[in-house]
């Protein structure tokens, strides 16, 4: 079945977008990325450390995975815009996962700074994928501002709490004309499947895989879960009923 994910005019056959944070080594990360089947993977921008050996970029390049720089660690629109521009320069991509957080304890996205940065980055020619709360109104406004996708959270980053407000995710999906990517909060495979069943176009996760006891095995589980959830969404689930409906003939 031909069922490509299209973001900013680019096609992906995998609907699982991976992050790279939290992996104990580049070898473990490499195995997990391969097992996940991902075609798009995030990296962060940080000060160059001359003592660092090996690079996440080498892993992505070797595996032919498109790099998606993020603006993790930014607290203001100004910081995020500068980080995106540096990423564009270093990685030769105009794609950016826009992430502007409000505080270090919750890492929840700041909607005001995020919207401000999104407008500036769209005007500067970026393909902007903003990380946001599960807020249908903000998602719509960001789409109107020219973002290529919206990335509502399921739960706080790294929390593994799953999708705390499935209803809001459905509302975002219903109204969206750009891909909706469930980002953050995924704990295990059923969370990823649920995101897809709710109608999300893709799932972005990192911690659930990189900090699992067997990252490569969990990556494979996520790959299957995203595919299963997508198929279930397309297939159309049965309505929920209050009482039983016999699946075997009742007459003798």
């Amino acid at each position: 079945m031909d069922d490509d994910l299209i973001i900013g005019g680019e096609k992906f056959s995998s609907r699982l977008i991976m992050g790279t944070g939290g992996a104990p080594s580049l070898e473990v990360l490499d195995q997990a990325l391969v097992a996940s089947g991902t075609e798009l993977t995030t990296v962060a921008m940080r000060r160059l450390d001359p003592s660092a050996r090996g690079s996440v970029l080498d892993v992505l390049r070797t595996r032919g995975i498109k790099v998606l720089p993020n603006t993790a660690g930014c607290f203001t629109a100004g910081e995020a815009v500068l980080t995106a521009r540096l990423a564009r320069e270093a990685l030769e991509t105009n794609w950016v996962k826009l992430e502007v957080i409000s505080d270090e304890r919750t890492l929840l996205p700041d909607p005001i700074e995020t919207f401000d940065a999104a407008e500036r980055l769209v005007a500067d020619g970026f393909v902007v994928l903003p990380y946001i709360g599960d807020d249908p109104a903000l998602a719509r406004r960001l789409e109107q501002a020219g973002c290529a996708a919206v990335m509502p959270l399921g739960a706080p980053i790294g929390s593994g709490l799953g999708i705390r407000n499935p209803h809001n995710i459905e509302l975002i999906v219903e109204a969206a004309g750009v891909p909706v990517i469930l980002d953050a909060g995924i704990g295990t495979a059923s969370d990823a499947a649920l995101a897809m069943e709710l109608g999300c176009d893709a799932v972005l996760l990192a911690t659930a895989v990189t900090r699992a006891q067997r990252p490569d095995m969990m990556a494979e589980a996520m790959r299957s879960a995203v595919r299963a959830g997508r198929l279930a969404r397309l297939a159309g689930r049965i309505p929920r009923r209050r009482y039983a409906e016999a699946s075997s003939p009742m007459n003798p």
Binding site: G19, T20, G21, G22, A23, L26, L29, T42, V43, A44, M45, R46, R47, L48, A52, S55, V56, L57, V67, L68, P69, N70, A72, L86, A87, E89, A90, L91, K97, E99, L204, A206
Partner: peptide, 26 residues
Amino acid sequence: VSRGAWDSTALAEADRVEVLTAVQGG
């Protein structure tokens, strides 16, 4: 400062230079 301008961009006293690269994250 884009890469093509590194050679021709002179620094001044007290300039703050940031050199960034991609690391694991997100």
